[in-house]
Design a protein around this nucleic acid. Structure first.
Length: 448
RNA sequence: GUGGCUGUAGCUCAGUUGGUUAGAGCAUCGGUUUGUGGUACCGAGGGUCGCGGGUUCGAGCCCCGUCAGUCACCCCA
């Protein structure tokens, strides 16, 4: 016997989880499309040179790579951005600019696993390329917001910052040369005590007073307008810094115009994000009930997406939903529906002489747009109902010889065990309407 | 990749200082004379104690390795 098992960081999804994942994918698709983002797809496998072009050691180490049967060096994509860059460079002429796409697909990273972190996981990216417009920056924030709302999360915050502000502040302090290290430290402020970060900054070579200044800046929180005016003091006369502040002001006022409730979009000057290609706005989002799991949806603006693959300059802005991390979080918060069936209507195979009637009823209900399962064997009614209840069907249709004689049918709410008799006398419209309204009466709460 | 913790039935765990055929609850399946489920009762299946080696007369309990999970670093979704 071969032991059935899966690789470290790779998992199977059972129906409850797979259904939850699909529901989120549906929601993401709907939200992305509502802003005009179009779907694309790219291969899982790319030429190695495409993936290593970016060249950071970190991604290099995490890359799944091998030589294929034709002797080509290939690798599995570790994000959706690099393949998109290649895609954009290859197809600019066909897609036209500006171009808005979304891409929801698995990616692979050979790094160590942790809660909500796997070696195979799904990302749901959306990006707008070919424009530097602040409108696209705002739209990116709004999409992140709408997405989390649509998923049904009430308690979350979308934190935004602008790299240009940080650049401006460092410029004013005269420490632009060690920007990467400084920003990496500041970025940890939410997780690590300030004193530890001060120590790190000093180790990098920042003076004590400048470290204090940086910590003060990165620690600013609260009302967006106040934070922005306080940031002015740190940015001083730096042109790039002022441009960043103007950008953030646009996000704040635009969010209000779009009807985003106050407090949902926050300015967080500590956010830098690791990727060094971000040049403008940066976005992260956190669940208030589980901030420790990290950012659920993040992104930002970059100057030049595809510089490695084309001479054409393609600026863009976008973000990515970490689907599997979100699912891990929702599961921990017990916000995942435990249903293991996608169908809401169950038909008991009661009278073995009436199989074709059951089939007829099932088809009619399906034609009316509902999901129906007919039990495959004429087993004991009790057993069938137990099965239906366990799986999470919402209603069951019970009809045996007596019902067929009187032209009725029982509609059972499985959760409440209540029973409804419907007189339909063979009129499918009456029956499907009754089933439909029975389902309406049985709406459940906000689970996924 | 580095370090800490963990690993007994599908799940949650019990298993005394190493000592005979490894247990419970829940879940699954079947039954309680076949037209009605989440309760009750009866019964069944399911574990070479993650895997491999070592110490010992004897190991689920001790040692080493390995695989997997988890936490921290790192990085990120």
């Amino acid at each position: 016997m071969i032991e059935p098992r899966t690789l470290k960081g790779f998992r199977d999804l059972l129906p409850a989880q797979a259904l939850a994942r699909e529901r989120i994918l549906d929601i993401a698709r709907r939200v992305y499309q509502s802003y005009g983002f179009a779907p694309i797809d790219t291969p899982a496998l790319e030429y190695l040179e495409i993936l290593t072009g970016k060249g950071s050691d970190e991604t290099d180490k995490q890359l799944y790579r091998f030589v294929d049967h034709g002797g080509r060096s290939v690798g599995l994509r570790f994000d959706l951005t690099v393949p998109f860059a290649r895609f954009a460079a290859q197809h600019v002429a066909e897609i036209g600019l500006p171009f808005k796409r979304y891409h929801m697909a698995p990616v692979w990273r050979g790094e160590n696993t942790q809660r909500g972190r796997y070696r195979e996981f799904m990302q749901c990216d959306f990006d707008t390329i070919g424009t530097t417009s602040a409108v696209s920056d705002l739209e990116t924030v709004l999409v992140v917001h709408d997405l989390l709302v649509a998923i049904g999360i009430e308690k979350f915050s979308v934190c935004v910052n602008d790299r240009r502000v940080l650049t401006g502040v460092l410029e004013q302090l005269g420490i632009s040369d060690c920007a990467t290290a400084v920003l990496r430290s500041l970025d940890k402020l939410a997780k690590v005590p300030a004193e530890q970060i001060r120590a790190e900054l000093i180790a990098i070579g920042v003076s004590d007073s400048k470290a204090s200044r940086l910590l003060e800046m990165a620690g600013l929180r609260g009302d967006s307008h106040e934070v922005l005016s306080l940031l002015e003091g740190f940015v001083g006369t730096s042109e790039i810094g002022l441009a960043g502040l103007a950008g953030l002001r646009g996000i704040v006022s635009g969010s209000v115009a779009a009807g985003v409730p106050e407090g949902r979009v926050l300015i967080d000057p500590s956010i830098a994000r690791g990727l060094d290609y971000y040049t403008g706005i940066v976005i992260e989002s956190f669940l208030e009930e589980l901030p420790a799991i990290g950012s659920i949806c993040s992104g930002g603006r970059y100057d030049n997406l595809a510089g490695l693959y084309t001479k054409e300059s393609l600026p863009g802005v976008g973000a990515s939903l970490g689907l599997d991390r979100l699912l891990a979080a929702l599961e921990e918060l017990e916000r995942i529906e435990t249903t293991t069936t996608p169908a809401e209507v169950f038909i008991v195979y009661f009278d073995s002489n009436r199989l074709e009637d059951y089939i007829r009823i099932a088809s009619a209900i399906r034609a009316a747009g509902m999901n129906v399962e007919l039990y495959p064997e004429p087993k004991r009614v009790g057993q069938q109902l137990k099965y239906a209840d366990r799986k999470g069907f919402r209603i069951a249709i019970v009809a045996g010889a007596n019902e067929f004689e009187t032209g009725t049918v029982q509609i059972k709410h499985l959760a409440s065990q209540s029973n409804l008799i419907v007189d339909w006398h063979g009129d499918m419209h009456i029956l499907t309407d009754a089933v439909h309204s029975a389902l309406q009466a049985d709406q459940h709460g906000h689970h996924l």
